[in-house]
Simulated assay, not measured.
Amino acid sequence: MLYGILAATSALFLAAVLAALLRLPALRLGIVDRRRRRPVPLSGGVAVVTATCLVAVVGDWRAVAPLEPEVGRLLVAGGAAALLGLVADVRRVKARFLVGGTAVAAACVVPYEETGVPAGLLAVGWIVFVTLGFKALDHADGLAGTVGVVTAFGVGACAAAEVMDGLAVLLSVLAAALTGFLMQNWHPARGGLGACGSLFTGFVLASAAVTTRAGQELGSGAGVLFALTAVVAADVLLVVLTRRPLLRGGPDHLAHRLRRLGLTAQGATVVLGAAAFSGVLVGVLVHLGRLAASGVWWVAAGALVFVLGLLRVKPHGPRRGRPPGPRRATNTQVRASLRVRNG
């Protein structure tokens, strides 16, 4: 317990310091998020990955918290996913390479001896889905980090209930590192998570959840996994239903549409963080046997209603509650006005 607190505290401060120190190098190297009105350096991903891995390796080296084989394998595979994401941050990488690389990494961490091959292959697909879903969730300040912290605590609670202490400590360290990063990423963001940090976060959380639920009944296991990542699933579903072509970028995610309803950037993040907490709480209670497995259906129904409601919000145009800005005069109108003035 004492080591867990010390490790989490170390990861929090290390991630916060690294995220701040790496801002300037990221700006100079052009590793920035250009989707926003001003370039945001993508220094947070490297900070989160470094802090999480370094604290875990030091604990193993000092024999305070030795890395179990499956945890060590998960950490190496997560590092590979982070490296792939770093390449995507530096230069454009086609989606199929991200999917393929993540699938290979996922195939190396699924415990097939407990899940069986058919269920293991489904688990690989789910890990890829959640990992890329977290990358897509990194579309608003503080959102991916907030959802990541909430999910990490939930999956960590499930791991602790299964006496997987090493995995529980790793997840608490990841949650702390994301919290330190949020000091730079809260609106207005001074640093972004990027593909490096979002792929690492999504991969570690999804793989840890699969490891925790391995060997249990497939139906209830799938329900718990969905509840733990309901916000990610809802965001992907919303984009799939509205975006044509699918791989085109656009302001059509959950947070974008909540902003169209008049919420502030911070307000949208808080709402989605609360939604993530609700789903995670149900997932943890079902895993612990404190709630019937049917409780997951309430999470699914709530997510579906949420998505269908936001489908009615146009992703473009003026936000509700704000009058549209003045129309800019065309060049023809300007020239006509000047002629009138000059007689």
Rank of each mutant, 00 (worst) to 15 (best):
A7T: 14
A11K: 09
L12S: 05
A16R: 13
A20D: 08
R23Q: 15
R23W: 04
L24Q: 14
L27D: 11
G30P: 04
G30K: 05
R34H: 06
R34Y: 03
S43I: 08
G44I: 03
V48M: 11
L54H: 09
V58E: 08
V58P: 05
W61M: 12
V64E: 15
P66W: 11
L67R: 13
E70A: 07
E70S: 11
V71T: 15
L75F: 02
V76W: 12
A77W: 07
V87D: 03
V87R: 15
V87C: 05
V90G: 06
A95R: 10
R96E: 14
R96Q: 13
G100C: 06
A103C: 12
A106W: 01
G116H: 06
V128Y: 06
F129H: 13
V147Y: 04
V149D: 08
F153S: 05
V155E: 00
V155S: 02
C158S: 10
A160C: 02
M164I: 00
D165I: 13
G180T: 02
F181M: 03
H187V: 00
L193H: 03
G197D: 04
T201G: 05
F203V: 00
F203H: 07
V204Q: 09
L205A: 07
V210C: 10
T211W: 12
T212Q: 08
R213C: 01
S220P: 07
F226A: 15
L237A: 13
L241R: 14
H253K: 04
L254T: 12
L258V: 09
T264G: 15
G273A: 02
A276F: 00
S278W: 10
S294M: 07
G295F: 10
G295P: 05
V299D: 05
L304D: 00
V307P: 08
L311V: 11
L311S: 07
H316T: 13
P318R: 15
R319S: 13
G325V: 09
R327F: 03
V334S: 10
G343Y: 14
